[in-house]
Structure formats: C-alpha cells, structure tokens
Design a binder for these strands. Structure first.
Lengths: 216, 216
DNA sequence: AACGAAGGCGACCGATCGGTCGGTCGCCAT
DNA sequence: ATGGCGACCGACCGATCGGTCGCCTTCGTT
C-alpha cells in the first residue's frame, strides 16, 4: 500500500493531480500518444480510478484544454481591466500572456495541438464547449481592443483577424517549439532573459506595425 | 538499395501513393493517431505491403517529413538564387514559401507537429537525419541573408534567431491553424485572396520592423 | 525455359488500447 | 452497529496496435 499519508488540507485533489499529469503527457505526445495506463501509473492510481473522475479519455482531454483556456482567459480579462490607452492595454495583455505561457510550460503546446486535433475528437462534451467559449471570449476581447484603437485613430488601419493570427504565431509558437526553438535561439525559450527579449520583440512589432504614423 | 534518382511523371508509384496518403493522415491526426491498417486501406493495399516500401512506422513518418522539408529547402534555394538586394531576396523567399505552403495543405501542420513530436520518436533513422539536415540548411540560409542585410546597413540591427521564430509563426502557423484560423479569418486560410493578403502582411512586417530608417 | 527479385496478400502474433465490472476499504452520519 | 458513499482497485473485455511470416503472382534477365 502506498502510504496515503500527509493528507494536508492544502494537498491537491486526485482530480487535480490527474489533470496536471495528463497536461504534461498530452503536451509531450499528443492526444493519441498518451495511454491511460501510463497516466494512471504516473499519478499513482489504478487505471480504472481515472474513470471515477472523468467519463472518458476525450472528456479528460477536453478538461485539460478547458483549464488552460480558463487560465488564459482570466489573465486576459485581468490585463484588460487595468485600463489605459489602447496601446498600453494591448502591450500589457501581450506581456502578461507571455509571462503566463512562460510559467506554464505545457500550455503553448497543448494550445497549438488542440487547434490541429479538434477536427477530429468527435464528442461534443460540456468541457469542449466550455473551451470553445473561452477561446471566443479571448479572441473577441483582443479584437475589440484593436478596433477601439483604430477607431480612436491611434492605430493604423489593419486587418484585425490577420493580425490576430500573426500575434498568436509570435507569442504562442515560440513556447511550443521545443528543442527546435532552443536550437535556433541558443537558449531555452522559457529562460527569463529570452522571455523578456520576446516581450520586446512583440512590442516593437506592434509599435512599428500598428501605431499610427503621427510622430513620424 | 542503389540511389534511385528522380522518376519521370507518369503513374505514381506505390511508394509515392503511400507517402501522399500518409502525409494527409499524419497532418490530420498526428503520428500516434494514424493506424497502418487505415493507411493501407486508403492507399488500396494490404497492410503488410506497406512494409515492402518502409521498414517501420517511424521510418515512414520520417520519410514523409523529409519529403516536405526537401520541397521547402529546394524552394528556398531557388528563391534565393535569383539575386537582388537583401530585402528583395527576403521578400521573395517569404512570398514563395507562402505559395508553397498554400499549395500543399498538409505541409504546415506536419511541420509544426514534427516540432512537437520529435522529442520522442527515438529511432535515429537515415531519413530523420536527412530531415534535420534540410532544416538546418533552410535556417542557416535565411539567417545568413538577414545578417548580410544588417552588415550592409540596409537592415536594422535585430536579434536574428528571434526574428526567425517570429517569421515561422507568421508564415507557417496560419496554414496549420485549421478550423480555428478559418473561423477567425472568416475565410479559408488557403483561399488565394487570403494568401495574397498574408503575403502583404508579412511583407509589411518586414519593411516596418527590419528596414533601416535611411530612406528619409 | 529457368530464375530471382519486387510487389502484394491474408493469416497471425504479442502487446496495448479505452473502457467495464464487481468488489474492497475507510469515513461519516445516522 | 450499520448502512450509504466516494475513492480506489485488479481482473477482464473486445478491438486494434505495429510488425512478421509464408505464399503467390508478375516481370525482366539470362
């Protein structure tokens, strides 16, 4: 019997421990590449116990994705709430998002993976719809911010959806690129100095590409 | 295995038909999500016949990736060969790359997927090393181009590896984003008009973010 | 005519897949 | 004390996984 000792009030529940472990595995090997036996072993449970917390593998995966999207959606809301000019708010959103992705090494990969895989994964579970909703919230928040800046004459007139995709590519992709990114950069993309540098890079992109040519 | 050179266009060989089908399946469902039975059925062969053309599943996957990288590497070489100023060459490389990705709907996804998955997939097959080589060639070609432009004083001084990652995010990611990209854009990312628009967007990014402020 | 290689086939292998089932254990309220 | 309950477990299920095997056909070479 593995000692169940140290059930301190602050200890994470089995459900959360499953989610944490599943997040790491899905990030590394993708949905189909993860076996539930392996996951159960990693958590320290019997495989059948997983089904006491989640109905099925697709629903577990959806729960993992939903948790990540909820984190990000909450972060974006918080970053936007602080106010300021459109550019100030935009830069703060990007800064905070980069911090969040850097702090959660699995998020970027699962985010991108889920984009590739949601073509399949038939089941329309509750969690999946929840995830869609979070995604839509995030996207529309940033879209609205961009349009606000344009209407106020502070932003150049740009194609909002296109910029949105570019922004994702610039913020999320580097954290998902793994060994490849490390090899190119010569350092870990999650290294604090590199995160800081990427913030600068994205910020410069936004300033150059988005700010209305008023000063020059 | 003598070095089989290029085949003239005619009826595609079984090997190529397997590669084509595998490319589509891997793009949609990832390495672990594709079963060899399914692939064989799609090609119209028995499953065991696959092993007459490829030693194993990992090697088949490596061959699919290597073929894509070879296509792209060749395209980049061709784009660079035409000459011109650094900015002209850079814009042509990006233009042609976007055309190539748009013409081969599976490439972008497999490219990104392979970045996520190569942590695993232990076997160091010939094809895998071949793929690494192509990747290195592509990256160093573009890096050299960027450095050349900087040394000539035509490009602003930028962090080359960082820009490289950003560029990948802006060019490859939109074509890999699937339904998500379609939903955001309101149209298929592969639609010719959208491809054209993305070319403009990337070109503008490069001009604003890279061109030295000399033309004044 | 003889032959070997190349390509293809179905049957089959052990392992593993997601998922189910019946049951045990400890806890807590009655 | 007892009975309901949530967490957990091992055993088991049919299906499918990647891969092997032996055999058959086709075809170019000699």
């Amino acid at each position: 019997m593995s000692a169940v000792a140290a059930e301190q009030p602050g200890e994470p529940s089995s459900r959360d421990r499953i989610l944490d472990a599943a997040e790491g595995l899905f990030a590394r090997r993708g949905y189909a590449g993860v076996g539930l036996r392996e996951l159960a072993d990693l958590v320290g449970l019997g495989k059948s116990s997983l089904f006491h917390h989640f109905e099925s593998k697709p629903q577990l995966y959806a729960a993992v994705c939903a948790r990540i999207l909820a984190r990000i959606s909450e972060g974006v809301d918080r970053s936007l709430a602080a106010g300021g000019s459109p550019m100030e708010r935009l830069e703060r959103v990007v800064d905070d998002l980069l911090d969040l992705l850097a702090a959660q090494p699995n998020d970027a990969r699962i985010l991108l993976r889920s984009l590739f895989e949601d073509d399949e994964l038939a089941g329309e579970t509750r969690e999946e719809l929840e995830g869609r909703e979070f995604t839509a919230r995030i996207m529309s928040s940033i879209s609205a911010l961009l349009r606000e800046g344009m209407e106020a004459g502070q932003f150049r007139s740009v194609h909002v959806p296109g910029l949105l995709l570019s922004l994702i590519g610039q913020t999320v992709f580097p954290f998902a690129s793994g060994e490849f990114g490390q090899e190119i950069l010569g350092k870990d993309p999650f290294d604090p100095s590199e995160v800081k540098r990427r913030k600068r890079e994205v910020r410069d992109l936004l300033r150059h590409g988005l700010l209305a040519p008023a000063g020059r």
